[in-house]
Amino acid sequence: MRHLANNSYIVIMIFVTIIVTGCFSQKQYKETRFMMDTIVEVTAYGPNSEQAVKAAFNEFQRIHDLANSFDEESTISNINKSAGIKPVNADPEIIYMIKRANSMSDKLDGVFDVTIGSLSHLWGIGKKGEYVPALGEVSAILQKVNYQLIEINETQNSVFLPKSGMMLDLGGIAKGYAVDKALEILKQNGITSALINAGGDVRVIGKKPDGQPWRIGVQHPRNSEGISAKLALTEWDTMETSGDYQRYLIKDGVRYSHILDPRTGYQPRQLASVTIVNNNSGDGDILSTAVFILGAERGIELLKQFPGNEAIIVTAEGKTIVTPGLEGRVELSVN
């Protein structure tokens, strides 16, 4: 247990520390697991808290099994292996995630693209060690990245990738979707006070047992012991974070993160992290990735097209930028 200043915060980081102060009459159950390539921590209060948390993790696992492109037996892998050959029957939830992502991609001029899977596998951040592909390899793979080519047949519940070698990667949307579904499970189990943090994707139910709002600390992307900003999160808010500090490699002094620009095949360099705070819009996970790729200036302009979405942006140089809608709600930290 670690205390920050004189208050208690939930720090969004790869190893999440949840700090609870005071003595509460409600039963607390907290569990942490490594899932979906990140640390997932669920804390719930109430007589049914343990059962509810375990059910929430079962839901995380279910979504992970559906969408994991590195699992040879998953639906996504079957779609990828059949690219250029035949359509594959897919769970309606997979089709929902693809359609939602593609709808957002249309609004983002392709800066978010779920057919980035071939690039993700080429780089293999966290999978291949210190592997940096050659320019020619990246250029060849870029020809297989185009979300507009995906063919969906909702009558037959099938998905077809028309080019051999095309691959889906739902990593930019599946985790946020899983968090939302897990939150529903907690509510179905009667939980009225809880917090889910899946590597910076945060949801809460109600307030803390002492009646205070959940206080959130956004991890400093270059200091695992520090935070960049603090704010109170209500039940009507969600948070989604994209950053270059969880899955990355450093080779010859250059940082290569798992976030790739589908237009270039390489990592964006301007920002270190982007946290989107919104009013349950459902778009925060995609928007955090899009802003991260576009950079601060263009990213902030982009958010004006999506009312209700605000951002806490940390640049590669360590500067923290807060969009106007969060002014007065965010306390910036000095690290």
Score class of each variant (00 low, 15 high):
196 I>W: 01
138 V>P: 06
317 E>Q: 13
166 M>G: 06
135 L>Q: 08
332 L>H: 07
14 I>L: 05
54 K>Q: 14
65 D>M: 09
190 G>M: 07
106 D>E: 13
120 S>Q: 10
148 Q>P: 01
104 M>D: 07
253 G>A: 05
120 S>Y: 05
90 A>G: 05
123 W>R: 10
163 K>F: 06
275 T>C: 10
183 L>V: 11
208 K>V: 08
12 I>Q: 05
68 N>F: 12
227 I>M: 14
11 V>R: 09
104 M>G: 04
317 E>K: 13
285 D>A: 10
216 I>K: 05
279 N>K: 14
5 A>Q: 14
49 S>N: 03
30 K>L: 13
298 R>M: 11
223 N>K: 14
265 G>Q: 08
141 I>T: 15
264 T>I: 14
323 T>W: 05
93 E>I: 13
262 P>D: 07
27 K>F: 11
130 E>I: 14
65 D>V: 03
204 V>F: 03
109 D>K: 11
47 P>A: 14
95 I>L: 09
309 N>F: 11
157 N>R: 15
311 A>N: 08
40 V>E: 00
70 F>M: 01
203 R>D: 06
194 A>K: 03
66 L>Y: 15
323 T>Y: 07
242 S>R: 03
60 F>A: 00
268 P>M: 02
333 S>D: 07
59 E>L: 14
116 I>E: 00
152 I>N: 02
139 S>R: 14
71 D>H: 07
326 L>P: 11
334 V>H: 03
323 T>R: 03
23 C>S: 10
268 P>T: 04
137 E>D: 14
169 D>C: 06
149 L>Y: 12
154 E>I: 03
90 A>R: 09
270 Q>K: 15
297 E>V: 12
223 N>L: 12
43 T>E: 12
197 N>A: 07
167 M>H: 10
47 P>Y: 11
260 L>T: 01
87 P>L: 08
5 A>Y: 14
180 D>N: 13
131 Y>D: 07
218 V>K: 01
187 K>W: 11
319 K>Q: 08
277 V>L: 15
221 P>Y: 06
289 T>L: 04
279 N>I: 11
157 N>H: 15
161 L>V: 00
170 L>T: 03
106 D>T: 09
62 R>Y: 14
30 K>R: 15
33 R>F: 14
135 L>Y: 06
149 L>P: 11
91 D>W: 08
81 K>Q: 09
194 A>N: 05
303 L>V: 08
115 T>H: 09
8 S>R: 08
106 D>W: 08
14 I>N: 07
126 G>Q: 04
9 Y>D: 01
172 G>C: 04
274 V>Q: 00
95 I>V: 10
276 I>A: 00
121 H>M: 11
169 D>K: 04
247 R>N: 10
316 A>H: 15
316 A>Y: 15
111 V>G: 00
270 Q>S: 15
295 G>T: 03
170 L>V: 02
324 P>W: 13
248 Y>T: 04
217 G>V: 00
292 F>H: 00
261 D>E: 04
318 G>E: 05
294 L>Q: 03
322 V>I: 07
3 H>P: 05
244 D>M: 06
218 V>W: 03
46 G>P: 04
54 K>L: 15
128 K>Q: 10
22 G>T: 05
204 V>D: 00
33 R>S: 10
255 R>T: 08
173 I>Y: 00
16 V>M: 04
268 P>H: 01
95 I>S: 06
292 F>Y: 05
